[in-house]
Every structure is written in structure tokens, then in C-alpha cells.
């Protein structure tokens, strides 16, 4: 079932964001077991995926499309450094344009169309009211720099990693809804430096194995994994840049408002090889669901409780949950009675 995007809702200030019953049903709940375990949990992103799931299509265009694009516009205007392309990454950006326009126009022909005559392309995005003609590969023929141009039409953050010297380097990105990392600071870092602050993953060899896996991804071998954290209010922009705005939200959680205030934030991370540049694309798509909506599914409610209860203290700290974690576990416990 393809849905038309809802009118614009907000991810800040008055927080009007909501999920429909359909969006709740297809939410990518990330916990496969009743206790927390760290794993790389990579699976194939082969198309088509399971019908109506978030991975049915390469890019999932859902009911929040217009809201997320409006939010992205706000962030880019306030913080231009959320779009960075180092000079050698221009070709990788065109790879992404090629990949995304082909997938979107094939998967959602009611919303997007692409006409090509040699390298003269005409792209229409009816959801945003765009129709642009350009010469493929010639950045001067686009109204915006290539990564910003396509990034403003895709839900989810994008990082383009250059592969060299036995590692991946984050040399381009459009990042407006990060889970607490700064593209401006982390640009140019290697994969393991970028993940430097994450606990466990280095000593357990997870980062080294993940890096080897990612560097070996071939063209057409897209893969995905889910990652998660918790966010107070449905706030997309939890970048460190604006931490002074959202940090204090963590102190507003009470036993009475947990269901409304605490959101499970799930990232579906998709990795694919770019054919011309050999860059690795990482698309980090963020889904948010309130605890009230989550516990409408009894299996999720029980599993959420057990996972939160067994979360190692280092991860509670690293994910920034310390101030409200006990209140959340207590609130969830009433959905785990047998």
C-alpha cells in the first residue's frame, strides 16, 4: 500500500508529528530478542523487500515525506555545515543522484518521474512540485550542489564514504537528523575514528569486522541494519550543535508523561556501493514512535521492557538515557506481567 504523504507536521517547537495506525504497524521495531545484545545485525537490502514494510523499496517514501523535507529545509537554512562535500566526492554525489532517481521513479511512479535522452535528464518530483532539466554529471546545471539537491528530496541522512588506505572516510554528507553526532566535526574522519566514542564496539572487534564487511560490499549488494536510541519528543534534529536546545528535555520526563514524551528512535541504515566513484553510500533513515503508540503492540511492549531492563549501564550512559531510564523501565513494567 503506497500512501500519500500527510500535510506538514513539525519535529520541533509544538511537535505536531504523529504516526497513523498504518505507520505504527510497519514501524521497524529493532529488538529481535527479550534481552539486550549488541550485534552488527546486517541483512540484505535486496529489492523488492517484504510488501508494505519499510524495506519494500530502496528508499521508503512514507506519510512523513513532506514533514521531513520541511524539517530538512529548516536545518539547512540554520546550519549550512550540515551539507559537506569534499572536492573529490563530486562523482559520488552524481552516483547517488543516478541511484535515487532510478529507484524513486520506478517504485513511486505516481510521485516521481525521470526522462533521459543521453546525458540530458528531466526529473520531476510532484510531491515537492519540482521539475528540473540538467546534464548528468555537470554540477553547474543543477539549481543546488548535487548532494544538497538530492538530499532535499530523500528522507534520511546521507553519508558518502570514500574508500582508500584500507578504510572508509566520511568525505561527503547531508546530515540534518543525526543521533548526536556532528558532520562539521566528523567530516573527513575514518570509519573507526567516526565511531571512536561508541563503547564496546572497539574492544569486541565489532568495528573492525563491520569495516571489513562494508569495504567488501559490491555494486548491487546493498545491505541494511537497524540502530536505535531514545529521544524526548519527536525531535529529528538531535545534533550536538543544538544540544543546548534539547538536552534539557531529558529532565521533563515524569511517570505521568512517559507515554507521550519518550520516543523510540530507530535508524534503518542502508549501505550500497556507488558504481562510478566506488564510494560507499550510507543512508540513515530515522523513524520515531511514541511509547504510547509502541505499547499498542503487546509483543513490542513486553520486549521493550525487557530490553530496557537489561541494557548495560555503559550504554544507558552512552545513549544519554540516564536521567529518565528508571522512570521508563518502571512505566514499561506494567506491560510485562505474566
Amino acid at each position: 500500500m503506497s500512501v500519500s504523504p500527510k500535510p506538514i507536521q513539525t519535529f520541533r517547537d509544538d511537535f505536531t508529528y504523529t504516526n497513523s495506525d498504518y505507520a505504527i504497524e510497519r514501524f521497524p521495531f529493532p529488538f529481535p530478542e527479550d534481552a539486550y545484545r549488541y550485534s552488527v545485525n546486517i541483512e540484505s537490502h535486496k529489492m523488492p523487500g517484504v510488501k508494505d514494510s519499510v524495506s519494500e523499496h530502496f528508499h521508503d517514501v512514507d506519510e512523513h515525506y513532506l514533514s521531513e523535507m520541511a524539517e530538512r529545509d529548516l536545518v539547512i537554512k540554520h546550519r549550512p555545515s550540515c551539507c559537506i562535500t569534499l572536492p573529490h566526492m563530486d562523482l559520488a554525489c552524481w552516483d547517488l543522484i543516478d541511484l535515487s532517481m532510478h529507484h524513486l521513479s520506478k517504485d513511486y511512479p505516481e510521485h516521481f518521474s525521470l526522462e533521459k535522452t543521453d546525458d540530458q535528464w528531466v526529473w520531476e518530483n510532484r510531491l515537492l512540485g519540482l521539475k528540473d532539466s540538467f546534464t548528468f554529471g555537470d554540477s553547474s546545471t543543477l539549481p543546488l550542489p548535487p548532494l544538497e539537491y538530492i538530499g532535499r528530496q530523500l528522507q534520511g541522512d546521507i553519508a558518502l564514504m570514500d574508500q582508500r588506505d584500507n578504510s572508509l572516510f566520511m568525505d561527503a554528507g547531508v546530515v540534518t537528523c543525526p543521533a548526536d553526532w556532528s558532520l562539521a566535526f566528523d567530516a573527513g574522519m575514518s570509519f573507526s575514528e567516526w565511531h571512536g566514542p561508541v563503547p564496546f564496539v572497539h574492544s569486541e572487534g565489532i568495528i573492525d569486522r563491520a569495516l571489513k564487511f562494508l569495504m567488501a560490499i559490491p555494486q548491487g549488494g546493498a545491505t541494511r541494519r537497524l540502530n536505535w536510541t531514545l529521544t524526548i519528543n519527536p525531535r529529528m534534529d538531535t545534533s550536538p550543535e543544538v544540544y543546548p536546545d534539547w538536552g534539557k528535555d531529558k529532565t521533563t520526563v515524569t511517570p505521568e508523561n512517559v507515554g507521550d514524551k519518550v520516543y523510540l528512535r530507530v535508524e534503518m541504515q542502508v549501505f550500497d556501493r556507488m558504481p562510478r566513484s566506488n564510494a560507499l553510500m550510507i543512508c540513515i533513515r530515522t523513524y520515531l514512535i511514541s511509547m504510547n503508540d509502541l505499547v499498542t503492540n503487546p509483543v513490542w511492549a513486553k520486549r521493550m521492557h525487557r530490553t530496557m531492563q537489561t541494557l548495560p549501564p555503559e550504554l544507558v550512559e552512552y545513549k544519554g538515557l540516564t536521567r529518565f531510564h528508571p522512570i521508563l523501565v518502571e512505566w514499561l513494567s506494567k506491560y510485562d506481567v505474566e
Binding site: 573507526s192 571512536g196 564496546f200
Partner: peptide, 10 residues
């Protein structure tokens, strides 16, 4: 804490 205190980007 003792688990992995050294940040690997350093």
C-alpha cells in the same frame, strides 16, 4: 569506566 575508556579517535 574500565570497559573501553579510551576513545579510539584519539
Amino acid at each position: 569506566s574500565a570497559y573501553d575508556a579510551r576513545i579510539k579517535s584519539r
